[in-house]
């Protein structure tokens, strides 16, 4: 469940740009697609939801937690356990293998190491053969799929995806979107995708346009 109320954000260095976001209300398992052109604050909204940016005005509730009220330490912990982030560009720990990246994600979010979950996930995403490869040895599509794996491995309450498809061709775009939907269903999570990619639009009923 995600709820935001009168959320605003102002970047300190550019005072004229005051971002105002519409209220969001998602009941559990509901998905949301946020569409908008570049520079309208899509990523800012996502980072506010993830607790990566401090909230100036407005309120964010995830589940029963009021994000504004959390201390730094609590926020770190909450983020690690309840939020899965998937980025446009894939970020990994380059010195580790695919499997090790997943392990470290589990470890740092303090969730239990679940071997079955890992293997199931790798199978779903078709990364079983790449398990022991270094991350930079993967292809673009494989990297994006690993990104998804890292975003959902710990069964977060909400999955936040930032332009997950913009670098992919049509086929991979289809695959990624369906995988995201499938994993969100498995984890019983809210899926929030922000994108300017119109190809994603038909897959979701719930749209917000910024």
């Amino acid at each position: 469940m995600i709820r935001t109320a009168s959320l605003r954000y102002a970047y300190k260095h550019s005072e004229d740009q005051n971002l105002v976001f519409p209220d969001i209300h998602l009941s559990s398992k509901e998905s949301l697609l946020i569409l908008g052109a570049s520079g309208v604050g899509k990523t800012t909204l996502l980072h506010l939801l993830a607790g990566l940016l401090p909230i100036d005005t407005g309120d964010v509730y995830i589940g029963n937690t009021h994000i504004n009220r959390l201390t730094r330490g609590e926020l770190n912990h909450f983020r690690g356990q309840n939020i899965g982030l998937i980025f446009q560009k894939s970020y990994f720990i380059k010195s580790l293998s695919v499997l090790e990246n997943l392990l470290i994600r589990e470890k740092f979010s303090k969730s239990k190491s679940d071997r079955y979950r890992r293997e199931e996930l790798l199978m779903h995403l078709g990364l079983c053969d790449q398990m022991h490869k270094k991350v930079y040895q993967l292809s673009e599509g494989q990297q994006q799929r690993l990104s998804i794996a890292l975003g959902v491995i710990h069964k977060p309450k909400i999955i936040l995806a930032d332009e997950p498809t913009s670098n992919l061709d049509d086929i991979n775009c289809e695959i990624v979107v369906s995988l995201l939907k499938k994993e969100a269903k498995i984890c019983n999570s809210n899926l929030v995708i922000i994108t300017h990619d119109q190809r994603v639009k038909p897959h979701f009923n719930n749209h917000i346009i910024l």
């Binding site: 990566l52 330490g73 770190n76 690690g80 982030l85 740092f108």
Partner: peptide, 15 residues
């Protein structure tokens, strides 16, 4: 060099 990696680790919940 590893700014992004370290930022990523922060999103994983480490302080």
């Amino acid at each position: 060099e590893r700014k992004q990696e370290l930022a990523l680790l922060r999103t994983y919940g480490i302080s």
